[in-house]
């Protein structure tokens, strides 16, 4: 695990110097939220719709930035260096930690902006929302990491990422939308155990499938 952490540190230091993903993500978040604000104008939108818009912004932001973990290595030609010096599990774990940090930072920023800018973003049960948010972010990070690994080997990287991500992330986003609706309605964690179990199962399945698949994707 220390090797994976070292790989994460290398990626993080590289990201701070190149701003490969952070700039793209920050610009995407600002532009998307601004477009939503301009298009709403003075209209009052429902709480459910605001909750839905939050996850739409999160989904498309993930599309714009999270593929970079592997694509940047492929574009710089450093993939083979990593294949040589680290085992596939070290690479996957390192990239997963990087995407987890990025997803959490990105989604906390988006949620804070929604709280500040949208009056109708009124969560009544924060514990349920935060629990769903935690499991949802893990799911997004795991799925994005394995999809990024797959598309980094393809020639049409830009278009393939959203195309592959949509069917894989759809069950996760639909469950998160449902749980956000429950949190807005004031339902508690114990009222939403089925949806939370679906979310938890999704994370476990994606994590297991990713570990099983990654060796085949990473090694030619």
């Amino acid at each position: 695990m220390m090797k994976a952490y070292s790989l994460f540190k290398k990626d993080w230091q590289s990201e701070l110097r190149t701003r490969y993903a952070i700039n793209a993500l920050a610009m995407f978040i600002l532009v998307t939220i601004s477009v939503i604000l301009f298009s709403i104008g003075q209209e009052k939108i429902s709480e459910y719709l605001t909750g839905g818009l939050l996850w739409v912004v999160i989904f498309f932001s993930a599309m714009s930035g999270l593929s970079r973990a592997f694509v940047s290595e492929e574009e710089r030609g450093t993939t083979m260096t990593l294949q040589f010096i680290a085992s596939p599990s070290t690479v996957f774990n390192g990239k997963l930690i990087f995407n987890l940090v990025l997803v959490f930072l990105m989604n906390i920023a988006i949620t804070l902006l929604f709280i500040i800018l949208f009056e109708s973003f009124a969560i009544k049960d924060w514990s349920l929302f935060l629990f769903a948010f935690l499991l949802g972010n893990i799911g997004i990070a795991v799925s994005s990491t394995i999809i990024a690994a797959i598309i980094s080997k393809a020639s049409a990287k830009g278009t393939l990422y959203p195309v592959l991500s949509f069917p894989i992330l759809l069950p996760l986003i639909l469950t998160l939308l449902e749980l956000t609706k429950f949190a807005i309605d004031g339902e508690t964690i114990s009222d939403s155990l089925v949806e939370l179990a679906v979310l938890f199962s999704y994370d476990i399945i994606m994590l297991t499938a990713s570990y099983l698949l990654f060796d085949f994707i990473w090694k030619d």
Partner: peptide, 14 residues
């Protein structure tokens, strides 16, 4: 193994 190859690229930003 110590490997020198045109395919092994180091990180320009470091």
């Amino acid at each position: 193994i110590g490997f020198v190859s045109p395919y092994l690229v180091l990180y320009d930003e470091f």
